[in-house]
Every structure is written in C-alpha cells, then in structure tokens.
Design a binder for these strands. Sequence first.
DNA 1: CGCAGAGTTTAGCCTTGGCTACATTAGTGT
DNA 2: ACACTAATGTAGCCAAGGCTAAACTCTGCG
Lengths: 146, 146
Amino acid sequence: MRVTDQSISEPDLPCDAERFNQARAAQSVAVLEDYAEMIDDLIAEMGEARITDIASRMGVTNPTATKAVARMKREGLAVSRPYRGVFLTPEGVTLAARVRARHQVVLELLIALGVPAETARLDAEGMEHHVSDVTLKAFEAFLAAR
Amino acid sequence: MRVTDQSISEPDLPCDAERFNQARAAQSVAVLEDYAEMIDDLIAEMGEARITDIASRMGVTNPTATKAVARMKREGLAVSRPYRGVFLTPEGVTLAARVRARHQVVLELLIALGVPAETARLDAEGMEHHVSDVTLKAFEAFLAAR
DNA sequence: CGCAGAGTTTAGCCTTGGCTACATTAGTGT
DNA sequence: ACACTAATGTAGCCAAGGCTAAACTCTGCG
C-alpha cells in the first residue's frame, strides 16, 4: 500500500459521498417532477395532455416523451390508454402541485436576490430539484420577512 | 387534428423547451465539474489523486470513477498514465477553481438565508451546477451587502 | 365509406453513469 | 527475489434519456 489508509478506512459514510448520493437521487426524480408539472399544466390549459404537446414543451422528440410517460406510469404517477391523452394519478397531481409551489418559491427567491427575471427563469429549472423541504422553508421565510 | 394548433406552430423556441434544454446541458457537465473539484482537492490534500480515493469520496465504485476520468481525459480536463494518479490539465485546474468558488458562494448563501449548515451542504451540491454567472454575481452581491 | 395525414407507438441505436466480476500491475515485506 | 495484496484496469451488464426511422391508429373530410 502507498501512503494512504484514509480512503479505505471509512466504514459507513465518507462524508462527501453522502451529498453526491443525495444529489444523484434528486436528479433521478427530476425528470418525473418536470413531466408531472408539465402534464398538469397542459391539462389545465387544454383539457388534456397529448404526447406531442408534452414533447414540444419539454424540448424533446415524441418517442422521448413517450418513454418518459411510460416511466411515469410504471412509477404510478400517470395513466394513459394507447393513442389517448395522458392523465395524472392522485399521486401525480400531488407531486405536480408540490413541484409547482417549489418552483415558484425558487423563482421568486432568485428575483428577490436581484437576478434578472429571464435568467431566474432559466436557473430555477434545474436548481429547484435540489431544494429540500428544509431549504424551501428557509426561502419562504426569507421572502416573507423581506 | 384535434382542438390544438398551439403545439406545432412554434418554429424556433417554444419558450419552455429552452429552459429544459439549458438544465439538461448543465446536468451533462455537472459530473465533470464535481470530479474536477474532487481531483483538485485530493491533489491538494495528498499530493496526488488516486482512483480509489476519487471513487471513495464520490461514493461510487472504482470502475465508475475510472470511466469518469476517461471522459475527463477525452474532454481535455485531466491526464493520467496507467496505474498512476490522475492530474488536471490547466483547463481542469481552471474549472476546479471556478466550481469551488461557486460552490462556496452557494453554500454561504444558503446559510445566510437560514438553512442549517448540514442541509446547506447537501443541497448546495446539485444546485450549484445550475447557477449561472449572472445568478452567481447576484448571490455575491447579496452576501456582500448583508 | 374510405383514405390521407396527423398523432402515437415501436424498434433500434448512442451516450452516460451506475454496477459486479475478473484480469492485470505494482509495491512491500520477508 | 519473489510472493502477496492492494490498486488499477477491463469486460460486460443495466437503466435512463436522448435520437431517427418506420409502423401503426385514429379521425375528419370528401
């Protein structure tokens, strides 16, 4: 063995690894969250969420949207019959509501901190998925106390 | 065609798609950024960055770290000879410095907003990769003016 | 009614980032 | 000097999220 022994002597949580694992976990649900919110938006706006509309708004091709919806169905967030629109399960609706609220808070926070609206809009997407409940509460408190 | 025509009549930027594409782009470089910073840390602490140490700290297995380093070499951020440690190119060092500085600002911002230190540590990872230069400047200004 | 075109799905490919299992190298200590 | 062990590398698997191309369904209109 070389000089070290640090690297192999951490039995449980190497302290850094923990936060990377959490970030990876957040990332793996980010897509579900975005699709849930988008489907909810489309249903509100147009009465139904079609694959083509979902794909167009997400900036992906139809097959990609189809696959994402398939995953959502597998995870119990959405339902759909072949060649029909996509709808959210109660779990999907709950998720969408939570995601939308969080998105709004993050966006408002960025703007409150002086970030230009357009930049805030772009950065909020992506950031939001990594904002925990505790952090969200802190953001809300800051916005309220402003 | 059904009721809509909204979805197919956007020639250039469907307005939503844009921000999702940016978030996806940020995500695709996030791993490079994390590894660059980690390698830089390890070199500073131990004089060299070994695959085993990188893997351990990132919370992944050795082959995963090896693959990530291979990608970094491909992208011109790192160099290494077989069975030797990993080192950063000047570009890698620059990236690491930028990432570390940004990470620090995001962490400090969260703490300044009242997020508990441990939560801040967890959330900053993941969020940081989606913080643009403009937003970073706003964060710095807020911290300075506090 | 039937058919053309829009919308949807399927098949198959690529890359990335995980993993396990196994092969190989290199450093150390006897 | 050589063997043993830790470290590294390689092969091959999987899932996710992109894509294109092609097949299939549905629907409205002539």
